[in-house]
Design a protein around this nucleic acid. Structure first.
Lengths: 147, 147
DNA sequence: CCTAATATCTACAGTAACTGTAGGTTCAAG
DNA sequence: CTTGAACCTACAGTTACTGTAGATATTAGG
């Protein structure tokens, strides 16, 4: 039927993924090595577009490449239980939620700092003072900022 | 007075910053090169502890090293206007707020995906299906995920 | 004074997930 | 047949560190 073949540029456009990144994914084994033309150019078809879109979508949702790899393996074996997929996605959700909490603590702290600013010189700057002394912070709101 | 001198290990403990990181900060010019002992070990005093704590605190609040550098320069010149400090901190706050918004969109999307899961096999998995097809997403909620 | 443990030193490699560059082919259009 | 776009490989650079190897320094105990 539709065995339309194309090179990397079109795959790049169709999956909204830039060319270097495609080659990078191949290099790290996230994409298999495709067939090559007589002139050594990579050749793809629509199944590659689907796979790459899957990868990009998962990445956009914040999944790390290792988890994308796991999801791809699962997607490749439709007889497997859905549970494992659920677990990966659930872990991702938990991570996102944790990051949101961390960032909200940062936000509060930054807002507090900014409110103290009176607009004088650095000598009287409460922001600089606060940065120099963690004790001036709301306790423990940002023990360690993750990414 | 208190001209107590110590080596890198104690600085590391007092500023809660690991040893390699201190050397790294020196290497990239965030910390000046300190005096050395006869045996070539770095020597610090309490003023270094304060500077390093300042750096770590700013980092914990999510400031990038380039911004930390700017803040340090400002802190070093107390006669400067506070405005510049305010601007850096305000920019940081705006960035944090944007990241929170992005992550909340991701969270909604992930929750929606997870709700669809019926617990069968991968063949019927709505998570995998959704990952494979961005059109199934709530429009534009995650056009591009920023860290 | 000698030894063993701990601390420090330099220099370099590795991390995540790409992006950018240099220098060289291949391909399609005119 | 030439020009320009697209493609190729190989490698360096990004951010902010962390980890490793192999050598020297310092300190405590016997």
């Amino acid at each position: 039927m539709n065995a339309e073949i194309f090179t990397i540029g079109r795959l790049s456009r169709e999956a909204a993924c830039n060319v270097q990144t495609i080659r990078y994914y191949e290099q790290i084994g996230l994409l298999p090595a495709p067939l090559r033309s007589s002139g050594n150019q990579r050749l793809y078809d629509e199944s590659w577009t689907r796979r790459l879109r899957f990868i990009r979508h998962a990445r956009d949702l914040g999944f790390e490449l290792d988890n994308v790899r796991i999801l791809l393996d699962l997607a490749d074996d439709p007889s497997k239980s859905c549970e494992a997929v659920d677990e990966v996605a659930g872990g991702q959700l938990a991570q996102v939620e944790q990051r949101i909490r961390d960032l909200q603590a940062l936000k509060r702290e930054l807002q507090r700092m900014l409110k103290l600013c009176q607009g004088g010189t650095v000598a009287d700057c409460r922001i600089i003072e606060t940065l120099g002394n963690h004790d001036l912070c709301i306790a423990d709101t940002h023990a360690g900022n993750k990414r």
